[in-house]
């Protein structure tokens, strides 16, 4: 196995995903299959190859610091599940 049940639980935790107990095994097997197929990449010697993160020569894009209309608070909060006093509301943090 490339990935154990315990590792899968850890990854789900990192990704902030609750996975029901009875689904953990299936996900582990599926990810194991996928990771095994990815092992194919090991056939290639890439020691002297530069990585490509992006195919375009990405550069920083600047614009003038000019005030312009935004979408506004009401629209920005429009899709939120819970709002109070013009702010996003979340459950207790501490």
């Amino acid at each position: 196995m490339t990935i154990s049940l315990k590792e899968l639980e850890h990854v789900a935790e990192l990704a902030r995903l609750s996975i029901p107990e009875n689904e953990l095994k299936a996900y582990t097997c599926q990810l194991d299959d996928i990771l095994k197929s990815i092992e194919k990449l090991k056939e290639l010697d890439t020691d002297n190859v530069e990585p490509t993160a992006h195919i375009l020569p990405v550069r920083n894009v600047m614009r003038g610091d000019i005030v312009r209309e935004g979408i506004g608070r009401e629209d920005a909060l429009g899709g939120a599940p819970d709002v109070e006093e013009g702010q996003f509301k979340v459950p207790k943090i501490v």
Binding site: L17, P20, A80, P81, F88, K92, I93
Partner: peptide
Amino acid sequence: GVSYGYRDENAEDVISMYKNSRG
């Protein structure tokens, strides 16, 4: 589950809200 989309309304703390909403 904060700015838009589905939220698990029953979560008691913010981490379980994230996890359940996404799950």
